[in-house]
Design a binder for these strands. Structure first.
Lengths: 249, 249
DNA sequence: CGAGCGTTTGATCGGTGTCAAGGATCGTGG
DNA sequence: CCACGATCCTTGACACCGATCAAACGCTCG
């Protein structure tokens, strides 16, 4: 707490990893001491490009970003939404080749940590390694939920589900309240997240408002009745595994 | 090579992990020496049930299985297809709670390895740990591809993509030829994999046959022209990461 | 004030779902 | 060896959800 350098950039990463397991002082300090270069990425710019080789693992320190894949006919699928503290390319920094692109939604700050430093830390301190591994598992869990969401739910439920997930994650990241938050995504982004067209997203949001699930002003979502939207979206936050740390306390 | 016990059950797991990194003798033997209980699971039976606690990691030793999630209206989404050598619940054996069910498609043999044994091995021998971690990354990569497939491709492309993936994976697992293989899935299963109805899958398969992409007898798929189906399915096997080990040789 | 982007709305189209019935295949038991 | 039931596959007619096309509207920021 003395007048050292500015607050360590990886604090938000630490916060996230500690949800995955409890750390002692050494583990905590080792995460914060990871070598880290901070850069700003402008809105709409790519943090990573498909096909690029990356030997750094990126941590999103502020702002929002999405992972996208373009299919043959040119349309886009968004496969993940990233917010503060998220590791946005742990997989492809380890596997070595970026299979998708990651794009900044607004101005972001990104921490770049050398892959080898992460790897070394993961195996030197199993608690940290396990927390990182868990993070991969939880990512996978979210992907599975998205598959089911897109494959088997109708437009209203898909959107409701996504709005619930965003609320819960924003709140967990300390970025807002799940019942009322600022949407970082345009309707076109929402459409690409749930496999619909922007036009239909627009109509469906209107429906959700009419049926009393949400109220909205531009880019601001307020959930009128959590129980209600939870039901129309068939949402159960278990898959986000936000409270697993209790098993380790 | 002496007259010991029968061939070690985890040979197929070893084969898979070695695609993720090269092992020395110690590493190889340690994987094979993992404690492992083998059980048979009958067709249509559940290997794992949603909500169950599992402290064992399951390796599929023979047969096929699927991971499924049932949504509110009762319809099913299949989020993964497992074949010989696949770790079918690494994530939830570590996280502790099964978030989906895994069901056997035909009679399967499954190896149950205590979670703690896997964990210990992963951190004692980083090469093995890294290979396991990679496996999680590659699972995630496949999930992302499925999201894009379901979200943004039309019925013909979705199915073509799935047929390509199955062929390539079967061949990689030493279970057949990507140009001609036995389908382990019914049309209803296919439908639940790609977010369509069984009826539409049926019609679409017919179309694919008519257009010369495939020929088929019951449950047997033969791909007439790999280049053609690859194109109609917008398929690029990169996301399966089958040849990454070259980077480690 | 104008440009650019995102939102909103209407009209129409088409891909896929739904419902229903019949046909094929296979394992099992008489 | 045949009959039977279960499961899966196939086909047709029709309905509907969401896509597409097009245009106007509203912010926001130079």
């Amino acid at each position: 707490m003395d007048a050292q350098t500015s607050p360590p950039p990886l604090l938000s990463l630490l916060g996230k990893l500690r949800q995955r397991g409890s750390f002692n002082v050494l583990e905590r300090d080792s995460v914060l001491a990871l070598p880290c270069t901070v850069e700003t990425v402008r809105a709409r710019k790519h943090v990573l490009r498909r096909g690029g080789r990356s030997d750094h693992t990126c941590v999103l320190l502020s702002g929002f970003a999405i992972r996208e894949k373009i299919v043959a006919d040119g349309s886009r699928s968004i496969t993940a939404i990233y917010m503060r503290g998220d590791l946005i390319n742990l997989h492809n920094s380890m596997v070595g080749i970026a299979d998708h692109s990651v794009q900044a939604l607004n101005d972001c700050t990104v921490g770049f940590v050398p892959r080898e430093a992460i790897k070394k830390l993961a195996f030197d301190l199993p608690s940290v390694g396990m927390a990182l591994w868990y993070d991969s598992f939880i990512d996978a869990s979210i992907y599975r939920e998205w598959i089911a969401n897109i494959a088997r739910r109708k437009a209203r439920a898909r959107l409701a589900h996504l709005l619930c997930e965003l609320g819960v994650r924003l709140e967990a990241a300390g970025l807002g309240n799940k019942l009322s938050y600022q949407l970082p995504l345009s309707q076109e982004h929402l459409a690409d997240c749930v496999g619909l067209t922007p036009v239909h997203v627009n109509r469906t949001l209107k429906e959700l408002a009419l049926s009393g699930d949400i109220t909205r002003t531009t880019r601001e979502v307020a959930i009128a009745d959590w129980g209600k939207i939870r039901e129309t979206g068939d949402f159960d936050e278990e898959y986000l595994h936000l409270r697993d740390q209790s098993a380790f306390a």
